[in-house]
């Protein structure tokens, strides 16, 4: 019993179950899940689908926070990714073409990769505090997104692109599949390789880790890049769901939601121990009305 009580996931799970209980009493239909046209429908499905982008970002953020860092720029990166993909799709002669969408998505992810490297550079090489380093991109990022969209809200009409945010696969929203895939990837990377051990170690005791021969610089580059790519994926899902790139509002405040989710999920902001399954719970419970 004491093992259960001291588990970092104990309180988050209790709170989540309590919230579900409240909902069940207040809205009896809360847990109803129906199958319509071969898709799942219901409040719970909505919660999970709408939570997917935040969840994706929270996975990246968890790793960043585990290294004693923070990434404020994810919201801005969402907006940039959305802006890039939509402008490419709009600029092509055939927006409905799968190839076009693939090019758009890959370009957005590559740009995010560069932005992540930039954050990593400021933190690991220049040695700027993470909160400040990522503040730069947080501030400038939406401006850059505006630059790409030329201040317009870019509405795209592309079936393959729309699938990302609103499609279903085997009855479950595609966005949820994506989140699950990233979660699995993160779990694989941190649990099947030594990455998890290294990240925890650097987060808890950077100097001991250095003396043990860890390369913390490369590690910081990796987590900030991963976080940025996660943010871009979330941005693509959000944009696709709204079928429009809105440089001002795509992913607005999502960094704060994600940080909150990570913290509620039991990862200490002081770095170190983390729980990558935690954001799943936390996100579902922190859904904003």
């Amino acid at each position: 019993m004491s093992r259960v009580l001291t588990n970092r996931l104990f309180w988050p799970v209790v709170v989540l179950l309590a919230l579900f209980a409240v909902n069940l009493v207040a809205f009896p239909g809360f847990f109803a899940i129906e199958v319509k046209n071969g898709h799942l429908f219901g409040s719970l499905v909505d919660i999970v689908r709408n939570g997917a982008p935040t969840l994706i970002i929270a996975i990246g953020m968890t790793l960043v926070i585990a290294t004693r860092g923070i990434d404020l720029s994810v919201g801005a990166i969402c907006a940039i990714a959305g802006a890039i993909s939509c402008s490419i799709i709009l600029g092509s002669p055939d927006p409905g073409n799968v190839g076009t969408v693939v090019v758009a998505v890959i370009t957005a992810l590559l740009v995010a990769l560069v932005l992540g490297l930039w954050n990593g550079f400021l933190v690991a090489v220049i040695g700027v505090q993470p909160i400040i380093a990522t503040l730069v991109l947080m501030t400038a990022g939406r401006g850059i997104a505006m630059l790409i969209t030329e201040g317009q809200i870019l509405t795209v009409n592309s079936a393959p692109f729309k699938t990302l945010g609103s499609g279903f696969l085997f009855g479950i929203p595609v966005a949820v599949w994506i989140a699950a895939a990233i979660f699995a990837l993160a779990a694989l990377l941190t649990r099947r390789t030594a990455l998890g051990l290294f990240i925890e170690s650097v987060g808890i005791n950077p100097e001991a880790s250095r003396q043990a021969g860890l390369r913390s610089r490369g590690l910081l580059f990796s987590v900030y890049t991963f976080s940025a790519v996660c943010a871009a994926i979330a941005g693509l899902v959000l944009t696709s769901n709204q079928t429009a790139a809105d440089a001002n509002n795509t992913g607005l405040f999502i960094e704060l939601d994600a940080i909150l989710a990570v913290v509620i999920g039991g990862t200490s902001l002081a770095g170190g121990r983390y729980s990558s399954s935690a954001p799943w719970w936390a996100r579902s419970s922190s859904r904003r009305s």
């Binding site: 220049i126 700027v128 400040i132 380093a133 503040l135 730069v136 991109l137 501030t139 400038a140 990022g141 939406r142 401006g143 850059i144 997104a145 505006m146 630059l147 030329e150 201040g151 440089a247």
Partner: peptide, 18 residues
């Protein structure tokens, strides 16, 4: 366009932080 404001501010921030 007005979005240049944010980019300028971001760039200035960067300069001052460095």
């Amino acid at each position: 366009s007005s979005w240049w404001t944010r980019i300028f501010i971001g760039a200035l921030l960067l300069v001052f932080i460095v």
